[in-house]
Amino acid sequence: MRAPRAAARRPAPPGATGSKSGLGPVAKRIQAGDRRALARLISDVEAGRPEARSVLRELYPRTGRAPIIGVTGPLGVGKSSLINELIQLLRSKGKKVGVIAVDPSSPFSGGAVLGDRIRIERDPDDTGVFFRSMASRGHAGGVSQSTRDAIRLLEAFGMDVVIVETVGSGQVDVEIHQIATTRVVVVVPHLGDEVQTLKAGLFEIADVFVVNKSELPGAERAAKDLRELASLSVARDGWTPRVVPTSVVERRGTEDLWQAILDHEEALHQSGAGERARRERAEQELRELLLERIERMAREELADDTAWTSLLDGVVARETDPYTAADRAFHELRRRL
């Protein structure tokens, strides 16, 4: 499964997929900074194409070191604008930044309008930034896998920091807390918004709270309330969520936000919580990948299966209850697989 170690290899013959680096041609192009190759590979990853998986296998050992910053929060609070500020700040420090902005697909048409790019002002020739919009495409579980994979590709491409924007509503489309190393939750100063945010379960996942649009009235109050809530909540691994007021219109707070993110990353490192979280994320991903395969295997096995059809007939006719039918199907599947 893993790409062979470089030390154990001899130069590959021309045309072979291997090379001195142990990478195939596509992986090599990604590492060499070929933007078009990266863009296309992200598309392949999103479409779940098997060719993409083989490139990911090759690149996997070279990933996992960059901080992954999840930026989430309700619609229109200024997530993309803040990311734009972070991009400018990080570029001024010489850091390369990859961004993935996820927006929901329409459940009706499957289409999407992906508008986060509007807020990004950058030199179009700056190769130190790669911004990609992704639609959630509706299939459960699949989104987080393509997001995980796209993050890895951005890192293999040479990005020092990867930022992922998602809309955090009641149903968090992308389970960002299972992907990011630092989770930033953005709110704005309006009474009620904070409550909504808490209800949506965003409070529990935040490592850093941003009160954006803090030039508006009520900002100080909102920050104070959040700080109180944060201090009351149980500190996870010695980290109490930080509260950072920002204002994109007044260009304030971005440095503080970045510092809070760095402090959190450092705290993860010091306490050993980062290592545990890494293991949890790996287990979560493995479990999802495995479950996906088991489910597919079961579906394929049951499609057009006569035993399954007659079980179903029995349930529809109310001759068998669904619990008994599921038991029988399960035992039958286990016998066969």
Partner: peptide, 9 residues
């Protein structure tokens, strides 16, 4: 979008 496309605006 309503025709099923992903539109980057």
């Amino acid at each position: 979008r309503d025709a099923g496309m992903e539109v980057i605006y």
